[in-house]
Design a protein around this nucleic acid. Structure first.
Lengths: 164, 164
DNA sequence: TTACTTAGTCCAAAAAATGGACTAAGTAAA
DNA sequence: TTTACTTAGTCCATTTTTTGGACTAAGTAA
């Protein structure tokens, strides 16, 4: 399977991973949430090659995660901004930051601190169930395949019986 | 910069992305949370080449995200299991699933359904602030660089003044 | 005129991924 | 006691992707 070929994959994680599952894409998005918008700014901050950056930005645009907006007339210049769909990736990037800060900070702590303006405190992320609001942990989650329906293809990747 | 070289990167997202920012790594981890443990099972479910799978599993092991455990004697066989550090990636994978289910399901809905055993309902994920418990949205987050300290290197990647 | 800015493209070299065959060490069936 | 099967990989030649550096285009500023 080639990179960026997701049509055949049914699982939504597999499909998302084809787009987001890339070192540069994740850091680009992280920078987007910090307010980075311009090509050269991404390029300098990330140290990615211009060619790769172009290809990643294009992919994110094709998938409606980023959009280009003109921010000046003469000469015409465009910047990249998160769409609504893109902003909905905030929990993914945010939990990745929480994990990364825990395991890959130097001893002075995380290099970037994040404050929740609503309550005024520096935070880390907590994941909770949309239904009962309790904190979600892996062992409380039970996965099952969607019931097969003659109108839809059967599920190809699914839960596995745990052994041991 | 070559793939899997993270020593110089300071930002914890950048460091994490070097490990996790890969199509296969994300789907491997997603399968791990479904109970997949054996090499051939990963290989068949993901359709990844055996070479690439070997390299990804090795990387995840080197970073203490997966560990090999012997599950039979004759012949000796090993399976891959999530470590504590690995299980702490649950929020990352879980929010990715929520996003992917929303944007990349077919019209029959997500192929795999997840139930919160504690409350009995199918859920999606909600992200909240560790301090006040409110739902976290990007516009309520303010990022700032860690104050420079002569004992530690200055922060190289950090927040950007938003324009427009 | 010359230098600078932004957002890219082009190209050859290097690195990584692919797929298919192969290995090793044991078990199970005929 | 051969033969087939299982699991967890390795090997290798080909294809694909990434890299870094130079270059372009269109306008502004000194």
């Amino acid at each position: 399977m080639k990179r960026f070929e997701l049509s055949e994959q049914q699982c939504s994680v597999a499909r998302s991973s084809v787009i987001l599952g890339d070192q540069w894409t994740l850091t680009i998005l992280s920078d987007c949430f910090l307010g980075v918008r311009r090509f050269d700014q991404f390029q300098e901050r990330l140290g990615v090659s211009r060619t790769t950056l172009t290809s990643r930005l294009k992919l994110l645009e094709e998938h409606g995660i980023l959009e280009q907006r003109q921010y000046q007339d003469r000469p015409p210049r465009f910047e990249y901004r998160l769409t609504h769909k893109g902003r909905e990736l905030f929990p993914v990037i945010s939990t990745l930051i929480t994990w990364g800060d825990k395991y890959y900070s130097d001893s002075a702590g995380p290099p970037i601190l994040r404050r929740h303006k609503t309550c005024g405190h520096d935070f880390h992320t907590v994941l909770s169930c949309s239904d009962c609001g309790e904190t979600l942990v892996p062992r409380d989650v039970e996965a099952r395949k969607r019931p097969d329906d003659e109108r839809y293809p059967p599920v190809e990747r699914g839960p596995v019986k745990r052994t041991g």
